[in-house]
Design a protein around this nucleic acid. Sequence first.
DNA 1: AGTGCGGCCTGTCCGC
DNA 2: TGCGGACAGGCCGCAC
Length: 271
Amino acid sequence: MPELPEVETTRRALQSLIGCTFNKVIVRNHNLRYPVPALLAAELIGDSLLGVSRRAKYLLLNCGRGTVIVHLGMSGSLRIIAASSDSEKHDHVDFCFDNGSCLRLRDPRRFGSVLWTAGDPFSHPLLKNLGPEPFDLIFTGDYLYEIAKRRSVPVKQLIMDSRVVVGVGNIYASEALFLAKIDPRAKANAIAKDRYSRLVGAIIDVLSNAIDCGGTTLRDFYYNEGQAGYFQRQLSVYGKAGELCVRCQKGRITECRLGQRSTFFCSSCQR
DNA sequence: AGTGCGGCCTGTCCGC
DNA sequence: TGCGGACAGGCCGCAC
C-alpha cells in the first residue's frame, strides 16, 4: 500500500510530465472513494501541467486553471505509459498528453480519489486540517510533546493521526517506534519529552530512508510492467511476528491490535 | 475536544 | 475444486 515514500517517489517520477498539455482525459470508472468529477476532462483539456507537488499522501497536479488532487488510497498507482496502451480491469483514469504519453491511475480497491479544485488546494476540505509534514521544521520533539500531553491514546495512534503529523502510515509507525525503542501501546501522555525528540528523529529517519530506497528503484518504478511500482522495504518489525528481534537478539517480535490496526514491536527492547 | 468505530472495496488466504 | 468468510489497509465522518 502506498505510504508516504511511495507517494513521494511517484511525485518525483511525474516531474517528467511538467510542461505537457492535456489533450484527453478518460474516466472509465467514476466510482472511487469520492466520485471523480464529471467535468474533469472539460477542466483539463487544453491546459498544461505546471508542477507536481505533494501534501501528506495527496499528490497535487498543478495546472493553469486549477489543481487535480490525487490520493492513491490502499492500492492505487500512477504510471506513465504510451497513450495507445490497452487498459486493464482496474485502470480507472487516463490523463493523456500532447506528447503521446499518458498518466494512468490503476486502483483495484478504489480507496483512492481524483478530485478537482479551482481554488487554493491547501484550503480544500480534505487538506486544510492536516498537521505538519514530518520533514517540516515545525515537527519537533517539543511540538509532539505539547500535543501528547492532552492525549491518552496509545502513542502509535497519536503519530498516525493526520492532524498531528501527516504521512505516518501503519507500517512506518511500527518501524519508527521500534527505532525509538518506544512501546507502541504506551499512552501518549505518559511519555517523557526527550523520548519524543527521539521519536521525531526516528520518524524522519524511517521515512527519509524509505524515500531514498524509492529513489534508487525509480527506473524500475518507471518501466516496470508488473504490479504497482512499490519498492522493497527493509523492515525490522512489521509483519515479523514471532521472529527474533534484529536489534537486541533477545526478545521476540510481538503482534497486537491498536485502533484496529496490526502493530508489531519487540517485547524486550521497546518500553 | 478526544476517542472509538463503521464503512468504503477487492485480492488473498484460510477452512470446510 | 469451489465457496464463504475473515482480513488487510487509509482515512473520512459519525456518535458518544
